[in-house]
Nucleic acid binder design. Structure first.
Length: 433
RNA sequence: GGAGAGAUGGCUGAGUGGCCUAAAGCGCAGGUUUGCUAAACCUGUGAAGGAGUAAUCCUUCCGAGGGUUCGAAUCCCUCUCUCUCCGCCA
């Protein structure tokens, strides 16, 4: 959520930054400013009335104490009408505030001023490239073919169970997936200093709103109804990422400055309905409704957040380096960034079978955008309460990492070799055809 | 699912209609004392919002939402959550 004071004091700056995202038409800045002005007007009025009423009530209390009941009763009648006027104004203020809040929750974060202004993924600058694409003496097969021939994934039966976009990992495929999860968590906790957490996979509406998923992207979440009485009470949402629960761990808390920075690492399955996406590039494992991911979350002091972002990207890159995979890092331009982010790096791993890069990690600095939404603060040394910056990054997404591994390490005979670092987790150095 | 207890500031915890402007303690900040540390003592210390150039003033907030009242942390109703015991259960 944006700071209403910033919108009020620098509306043109806010308009310019939002326009850089390419959402200027949808941005009700004028509406927000008008509501904000109305709110303050009514608030001033009703507060003056309340001050008067409080004064009179106090006088009545004194009269009652002196047993001057006749005078007290007269004053009561005079004071009574304040109640109705106050109630009316209170109602107006509440309505305006609700409306203002709804508008604010729909405004995306402002891109950092250093981020390249662009319209789409085509404008994303490449930050660095690691290694070279592997060279094959034969035509590398796409992952779908390899997974079928090695019986790593049963695509047909996965779809039979839950529809397209759901995977049934089998035998060595299931073990590879599990081994990767273990490998990633060990790496980030033991070597990178993150604290492991294992969150709920169903979260409240507040959590989804806190990270910026709701209200804008509500149609992309799977909702689960407790009881089934149709009310939104007791409704929970399958996590689209572990970010949803983990970033909210300290929601509505005031942290001590010495508690920061906080580093969390969490595995979770991720559920994405992506309404309307069915049928578009859905073959195989590239785009699915359920995938595994190991997520990194940082809660940090504002002045350190961009250094922390660089470190987080390096932590995610380490995964691909240890697995010997070719990848590149890009920075998302203003038009391609997520709703909550001020700056995002994507890491894309090379897929020999597709002949293209696949996004396996997205690391974002959301600055105080999410902290405001969840009212998470910390007490700064100066004594004032400030919003910390929250970062999230994939470390990394699994299905696409799986694709890159299988395609990169395929052999002439159709088998797959296992990178050295993964061998202890799989208890083998090769998956045979 | 049944029964009971509870939810008050960063934390613990008092407060059952009117100086509650929320006691007290802990914690935290500053100060005094001090060779250093520690300790002791003193002072200060909730949040959000609004008006004002400013000093300052005002409003709201005691789990959430309604209600009663001139006035609610306090009384009434509804809901949520937590704890204890019982039942069921992986």
């Amino acid at each position: 959520m944006l700071d209403i004071k910033v919108i009020r004091e620098q509306p043109d700056f806010v308009r310019e930054r939002l326009a850089a995202r390419g959402v200027e038409d949808a941005v009700p800045i004028a509406e927000v400013l008008s509501l904000d002005e109305q709110r303050r007007k009514y608030l001033t009025e009703v507060e003056q009335l309340k001050a008067q009423r409080n004064r009179l009530s106090k006088e009545i209390g004194v009269l009652m104490g002196q047993k001057k009941t006749a005078e007290a009763d007269a004053k009561k009648i005079a004071t009574r009408e304040f109640g109705t006027r106050i109630a009316g104004l209170d109602k107006s203020v509440a309505e305006i505030e609700t409306s203002l809040q709804q508008n604010l929750l729909r405004l995306p974060n402002l891109p950092h001023t250093s981020v390249v202004v662009g319209k789409s993924a085509a404008d994303n600058p490449v930050v660095r490239v690691h290694g070279d694409p592997p060279v094959f003496t034969f035509k590398p097969k796409p992952h779908v073919e390899l997974c079928e021939s090695l019986k790593l994934i049963d695509f047909v039966r996965g779809a039979k169970l839950s529809g397209s976009g759901f995977l049934l990992y089998t035998n060595w495929g299931a073990r590879l997936e599990r081994g990767l999860i273990q490998f990633l968590i060990d790496l980030h906790t033991i070597e990178h200093g993150y604290t492991e957490v294992s969150p709920p996979y169903l979260v409240s509406r507040d959590c989804m709103t806190g990270v910026g998923q709701f209200p804008k992207f509500e149609d992309q979440a799977y909702a689960v109804q407790e009881g089934g009485d149709g009310s939104t009470l007791g409704r929970l949402y399958l996590v689209p990422t572990a970010e949803a629960p983990v970033a909210n761990i300290h929601r509505e808390e005031i942290l001590g400055e010495n508690q920061l920075p906080i580093y969390y690492c969490a595995y979770s399955p991720c559920f994405r309905a992506e309404a309307g996406a069915a049928g578009v590039g859905t073959r195989g494992m590239i785009r699915v409704h359920q995938f595994d991911k190991v997520e990194l979350i940082k809660i940090v002091k504002p002045e350190t957040s961009y250094d922390e972002l660089e470190k987080m990207v390096a932590n995610a890159e380490r995964v691909l380096q240890l697995l010997g995979l070719h990848y590149r890092v890009i920075q998302l331009c203003t038009g391609d960034m997520g709703f909550a982010s001020a700056m995002t790096y994507d890491i894309e791993v090379w897929s020999p079978g597709q002949g293209s890069y696949l996004e396996v990690s997205s690391c974002s600095n959301c600055e105080d955008f999410q902290a405001r939404r969840m009212n998470l603060r910390f007490k700064a040394g100066t004594g004032e309460n400030k919003f910390p910056h929250i970062l999230n990054g994939s470390g990394t997404a699994l299905a696409r990492l799986f694709v890159a591994l299988v395609e990169t390490y395929q052999q002439t005979d159709g088998s797959i070799t296992i990178p050295e670092k993964l061998q202890p987790y799989l208890k083998t150095d090769r998956i045979l055809a």
